[in-house]
Protein backbone atom coordinates (compact mmCIF):
# COMPACT_ATOMS: atom_id res chain seq x y z
CA UNK A 1 0.00 0.00 0.00
CA UNK A 2 1.12 3.51 -0.72
CA UNK A 3 2.29 5.09 2.47
CA UNK A 4 0.37 8.21 3.27
CA UNK A 5 1.70 10.73 5.77
CA UNK A 6 0.15 10.30 9.23
CA UNK A 7 -0.92 13.90 9.52
CA UNK A 8 -2.88 13.79 6.29
CA UNK A 9 -2.61 14.67 2.64
CA UNK A 10 -4.50 16.20 -0.26
CA UNK A 11 -6.06 13.91 -2.85
CA UNK A 12 -5.64 14.24 -6.59
CA UNK A 13 -9.06 15.92 -6.78
CA UNK A 14 -8.09 18.38 -4.08
CA UNK A 15 -9.90 17.02 -1.01
CA UNK A 16 -8.18 17.24 2.35
CA UNK A 17 -7.68 13.88 4.05
CA UNK A 18 -6.74 14.08 7.73
CA UNK A 19 -5.13 11.70 10.23
CA UNK A 20 -6.71 8.44 11.38
CA UNK A 21 -9.98 9.08 13.21
CA UNK A 22 -11.20 5.55 13.80
CA UNK A 23 -9.07 2.49 14.15
CA UNK A 24 -10.25 -1.10 14.44
CA UNK A 25 -7.73 -3.43 16.02
CA UNK A 26 -7.89 -7.20 15.83
CA UNK A 27 -11.66 -7.36 15.81
CA UNK A 28 -13.18 -10.82 16.14
CA UNK A 29 -16.95 -11.27 16.20
CA UNK A 30 -18.67 -14.60 16.75
CA UNK A 31 -22.30 -15.66 16.59
CA UNK A 32 -22.34 -18.90 18.52
CA UNK A 33 -19.95 -21.05 16.54
CA UNK A 34 -19.86 -18.80 13.48
CA UNK A 35 -16.99 -16.36 13.20
CA UNK A 36 -18.44 -13.49 11.19
CA UNK A 37 -15.30 -11.37 11.60
CA UNK A 38 -11.89 -12.92 12.04
CA UNK A 39 -9.17 -10.79 13.57
CA UNK A 40 -9.57 -7.80 11.30
CA UNK A 41 -7.71 -4.51 11.67
CA UNK A 42 -7.97 -1.39 9.57
CA UNK A 43 -8.24 2.34 10.01
CA UNK A 44 -10.36 5.17 8.73
CA UNK A 45 -8.95 8.62 8.07
CA UNK A 46 -10.70 11.88 8.62
CA UNK A 47 -12.46 13.07 5.49
CA UNK A 48 -11.91 9.99 3.41
CA UNK A 49 -14.35 7.74 1.63
CA UNK A 50 -13.53 4.27 2.85
CA UNK A 51 -15.19 1.35 1.11
CA UNK A 52 -15.74 -2.14 2.46
CA UNK A 53 -16.34 -4.72 -0.23
CA UNK A 54 -16.62 -8.47 -0.43
CA UNK A 55 -18.92 -11.27 -1.55
CA UNK A 56 -22.24 -11.99 0.15
CA UNK A 57 -21.91 -13.07 3.75
CA UNK A 58 -18.34 -11.81 3.96
CA UNK A 59 -19.09 -9.94 7.18
CA UNK A 60 -19.29 -6.37 5.86
CA UNK A 61 -22.55 -5.46 7.56
CA UNK A 62 -21.35 -7.13 10.73
CA UNK A 63 -18.31 -4.87 10.62
CA UNK A 64 -20.52 -1.82 10.27
CA UNK A 65 -22.62 -3.03 13.18
CA UNK A 66 -19.47 -3.27 15.27
CA UNK A 67 -18.56 0.31 14.43
CA UNK A 68 -22.03 1.61 15.26
CA UNK A 69 -22.07 -0.28 18.53
CA UNK A 70 -24.81 -2.65 17.57
CA UNK A 71 -22.66 -5.73 17.89
CA UNK A 72 -20.00 -6.03 20.55
CA UNK A 73 -16.98 -7.94 19.28
CA UNK A 74 -15.62 -10.72 21.48
CA UNK A 75 -12.07 -9.61 20.82
CA UNK A 76 -10.27 -6.50 19.71
CA UNK A 77 -10.64 -2.83 20.37
CA UNK A 78 -11.85 0.32 18.70
CA UNK A 79 -9.86 3.54 18.91
CA UNK A 80 -11.93 6.63 18.20
CA UNK A 81 -10.19 9.99 17.98
CA UNK A 82 -7.15 8.46 19.63
CA UNK A 83 -8.93 6.91 22.63
CA UNK A 84 -10.05 3.38 23.22
CA UNK A 85 -13.83 3.34 23.02
CA UNK A 86 -15.45 1.73 26.03
CA UNK A 87 -18.32 -0.67 25.52
CA UNK A 88 -21.42 1.45 24.94
CA UNK A 89 -24.96 1.01 23.60
CA UNK A 90 -25.71 2.21 20.05
CA UNK A 91 -27.53 5.36 21.13
CA UNK A 92 -24.38 6.52 22.89
CA UNK A 93 -22.25 5.73 19.86
CA UNK A 94 -24.65 7.93 17.90
CA UNK A 95 -23.93 10.74 20.31
CA UNK A 96 -20.22 10.52 19.57
CA UNK A 97 -20.90 11.64 16.01
CA UNK A 98 -21.41 8.38 14.13
CA UNK A 99 -24.54 8.03 12.00
CA UNK A 100 -25.56 5.28 9.63
CA UNK A 101 -28.02 3.88 7.15
CA UNK A 102 -29.10 0.26 6.94
CA UNK A 103 -28.84 -2.37 4.24
CA UNK A 104 -32.58 -3.01 4.68
CA UNK A 105 -34.12 0.42 4.96
CA UNK A 106 -34.91 1.23 8.57
CA UNK A 107 -37.10 4.30 8.39
CA UNK A 108 -39.97 5.16 10.69
CA UNK A 109 -42.76 4.12 8.36
CA UNK A 110 -45.58 5.75 10.26
CA UNK A 111 -43.99 9.18 10.23
CA UNK A 112 -43.66 11.80 7.52
CA UNK A 113 -40.40 12.39 5.69
CA UNK A 114 -39.95 15.61 7.62
CA UNK A 115 -40.48 13.92 10.99
CA UNK A 116 -38.08 11.15 10.06
CA UNK A 117 -35.38 13.64 9.28
CA UNK A 118 -36.17 15.77 12.33
CA UNK A 119 -35.73 12.64 14.44
CA UNK A 120 -32.20 12.48 13.08
CA UNK A 121 -31.45 15.66 15.01
CA UNK A 122 -32.40 13.91 18.23
CA UNK A 123 -28.99 14.41 19.81
CA UNK A 124 -28.74 18.06 18.89
CA UNK A 125 -32.02 19.16 20.48
CA UNK A 126 -31.86 20.25 24.07
CA UNK A 127 -35.28 21.44 25.26
CA UNK A 128 -36.29 19.55 28.37
CA UNK A 129 -39.55 17.79 29.05
CA UNK A 130 -41.39 20.66 30.71
CA UNK A 131 -40.48 23.20 28.07
CA UNK A 132 -41.77 20.84 25.40
CA UNK A 133 -44.95 20.11 27.32
CA UNK A 134 -45.74 23.81 27.59
CA UNK A 135 -44.31 24.59 24.14
CA UNK A 136 -42.53 27.40 25.88
CA UNK A 137 -40.62 29.97 23.83
CA UNK A 138 -37.32 28.06 23.87
CA UNK A 139 -38.92 24.78 22.81
CA UNK A 140 -40.80 26.17 19.84
CA UNK A 141 -37.85 28.35 18.86
CA UNK A 142 -35.58 25.35 18.99
CA UNK A 143 -38.00 23.38 16.84
CA UNK A 144 -37.88 26.16 14.23
CA UNK A 145 -34.09 26.38 14.27
CA UNK A 146 -33.75 22.67 13.74
CA UNK A 147 -36.44 22.73 11.09
CA UNK A 148 -34.31 25.24 9.22
CA UNK A 149 -31.29 22.92 9.33
CA UNK A 150 -33.44 20.02 8.23
CA UNK A 151 -34.76 22.06 5.32
CA UNK A 152 -31.15 22.51 4.18
CA UNK A 153 -30.69 18.75 4.16
CA UNK A 154 -33.97 18.39 2.29
CA UNK A 155 -32.81 20.90 -0.32
CA UNK A 156 -29.44 19.25 -0.55
CA UNK A 157 -30.92 15.84 -1.30
CA UNK A 158 -33.62 17.29 -3.53
CA UNK A 159 -36.59 15.84 -1.69
CA UNK A 160 -38.61 19.02 -1.14
CA UNK A 161 -41.62 17.62 -2.93
CA UNK A 162 -42.10 14.71 -0.52
CA UNK A 163 -41.47 16.59 2.71
CA UNK A 164 -44.90 15.89 4.19
CA UNK A 165 -45.44 12.47 2.66
CA UNK A 166 -45.71 9.49 4.99
CA UNK A 167 -42.61 7.40 4.41
CA UNK A 168 -44.63 4.23 3.88
CA UNK A 169 -45.96 5.68 0.61
CA UNK A 170 -42.54 6.32 -0.95
CA UNK A 171 -40.88 4.17 -3.60
CA UNK A 172 -37.73 2.30 -2.67
CA UNK A 173 -35.20 4.68 -4.18
CA UNK A 174 -36.62 7.70 -2.40
CA UNK A 175 -36.73 5.82 0.87
CA UNK A 176 -33.00 5.22 0.57
CA UNK A 177 -32.53 8.92 0.03
CA UNK A 178 -34.67 9.84 3.02
CA UNK A 179 -32.66 7.47 5.15
CA UNK A 180 -29.51 9.24 4.04
CA UNK A 181 -31.17 12.56 4.87
CA UNK A 182 -32.02 11.35 8.36
CA UNK A 183 -28.42 10.29 8.95
CA UNK A 184 -27.10 13.58 7.56
CA UNK A 185 -29.43 15.61 9.75
CA UNK A 186 -27.43 14.40 12.73
CA UNK A 187 -24.42 16.28 11.33
CA UNK A 188 -22.20 13.23 11.88
CA UNK A 189 -18.43 13.18 11.68
CA UNK A 190 -18.52 9.64 10.39
CA UNK A 191 -21.30 8.39 8.16
CA UNK A 192 -21.73 4.65 7.67
CA UNK A 193 -23.61 3.66 4.52
CA UNK A 194 -24.59 0.02 4.12
CA UNK A 195 -25.30 -0.57 0.43
CA UNK A 196 -26.93 2.81 -0.23
CA UNK A 197 -27.41 1.98 -3.90
CA UNK A 198 -28.65 -1.59 -3.70
CA UNK A 199 -31.66 -2.13 -5.90
CA UNK A 200 -31.39 1.21 -7.66
CA UNK A 201 -31.39 1.87 -11.37
CA UNK A 202 -28.46 3.53 -13.10
CA UNK A 203 -29.88 7.00 -12.84
CA UNK A 204 -30.68 6.67 -9.14
CA UNK A 205 -27.19 5.30 -8.57
CA UNK A 206 -25.66 8.31 -10.25
CA UNK A 207 -27.71 10.64 -8.07
CA UNK A 208 -26.70 8.78 -4.95
CA UNK A 209 -23.02 8.79 -5.92
CA UNK A 210 -23.20 12.51 -6.45
CA UNK A 211 -24.82 13.02 -3.05
CA UNK A 212 -22.18 10.94 -1.32
CA UNK A 213 -19.38 12.88 -2.99
CA UNK A 214 -21.04 16.19 -2.18
CA UNK A 215 -21.54 15.29 1.48
CA UNK A 216 -17.93 14.33 1.74
CA UNK A 217 -16.74 17.39 -0.11
CA UNK A 218 -18.99 20.07 1.36
CA UNK A 219 -19.19 18.96 4.98
CA UNK A 220 -15.92 17.06 5.20
CA UNK A 221 -17.83 14.05 6.50
CA UNK A 222 -15.86 10.83 6.72
CA UNK A 223 -17.73 8.09 4.88
CA UNK A 224 -17.61 4.34 5.25
CA UNK A 225 -19.34 2.72 2.32
CA UNK A 226 -20.39 -0.86 1.70
CA UNK A 227 -21.23 -1.40 -1.93
CA UNK A 228 -21.41 -4.27 -4.40
CA UNK A 229 -21.22 -2.20 -7.57
CA UNK A 230 -17.48 -2.22 -8.34
CA UNK A 231 -17.68 0.68 -10.74
CA UNK A 232 -19.18 2.89 -8.04
CA UNK A 233 -16.70 1.74 -5.41
CA UNK A 234 -13.67 2.32 -7.59
CA UNK A 235 -14.98 5.74 -8.60
CA UNK A 236 -15.90 7.04 -5.18
CA UNK A 237 -13.54 5.63 -2.64
CA UNK A 238 -10.09 6.68 -1.51
CA UNK A 239 -9.27 3.34 0.07
CA UNK A 240 -10.93 -0.05 0.03
CA UNK A 241 -11.02 -2.92 2.55
CA UNK A 242 -11.80 -6.28 0.99
CA UNK A 243 -13.40 -8.98 3.13
CA UNK A 244 -14.09 -12.61 2.39
CA UNK A 245 -15.43 -15.23 4.79
CA UNK A 246 -14.87 -12.86 7.71
CA UNK A 247 -11.22 -12.27 6.84
CA UNK A 248 -9.55 -9.20 5.45
CA UNK A 249 -7.95 -10.13 2.16
CA UNK A 250 -7.05 -6.74 0.82
CA UNK A 251 -6.69 -3.12 1.87
CA UNK A 252 -5.51 -0.18 -0.19
CA UNK A 253 -6.35 2.25 -2.93
CA UNK A 254 -8.80 1.10 -5.59
CA UNK A 255 -5.90 0.43 -7.97
CA UNK A 256 -3.98 -1.63 -5.46
CA UNK A 257 -7.02 -3.67 -4.56
CA UNK A 258 -7.93 -4.25 -8.18
CA UNK A 259 -4.56 -5.82 -8.80
CA UNK A 260 -4.45 -7.88 -5.61
CA UNK A 261 -4.39 -11.60 -6.50
CA UNK A 262 -6.36 -12.71 -3.39
CA UNK A 263 -9.07 -10.23 -4.23
CA UNK A 264 -9.25 -11.37 -7.82
CA UNK A 265 -9.50 -14.97 -6.67
CA UNK A 266 -12.25 -14.19 -4.17
CA UNK A 267 -14.29 -12.41 -6.75
CA UNK A 268 -13.69 -15.03 -9.42
CA UNK A 269 -14.77 -17.64 -6.93
CA UNK A 270 -11.50 -19.55 -6.85
CA UNK A 271 -11.76 -22.44 -4.39
CA UNK A 272 -10.54 -21.69 -0.90
CA UNK A 273 -7.70 -23.82 0.32
Amino acid sequence: MLDQPAEGYVTADGRQIGPVVLELKNITLRFGGVEAIKNISFDIREGEIRAIIGPNGAGKSSMMNVISGFYVPQEGEILYKGYKRRKMPPYQVARTGIARTFQNIALFEGMSVLDNIMTGRMNLMKSGFLKQALWWGPASREEDEHREKVEKVIDFLEIQHIRKTPVARLPYGLKKRVELARALAAEPQILLLDEPMAGMNVEEKEDMSRFILDVNDEFGTTIVLIEHDMGVVMDLSDRVVVMDYGKKIGDGTPDEVRNNQDVIDAYLGVAHE
Binding site: P89, Y91, A106, F108, M122
Partner: peptide, 10 residues
Protein backbone atom coordinates in the same frame (compact mmCIF):
# COMPACT_ATOMS: atom_id res chain seq x y z
CA UNK B 1 -42.02 2.26 14.21
CA UNK B 2 -38.60 0.68 14.55
CA UNK B 3 -36.88 0.54 17.89
CA UNK B 4 -33.55 -0.64 16.47
CA UNK B 5 -33.27 2.31 14.09
CA UNK B 6 -34.37 4.65 16.86
CA UNK B 7 -31.54 3.47 19.02
CA UNK B 8 -29.01 3.88 16.22
CA UNK B 9 -30.13 7.47 15.83
CA UNK B 10 -29.54 8.20 19.48
Amino acid sequence: DMDIAAEIIG
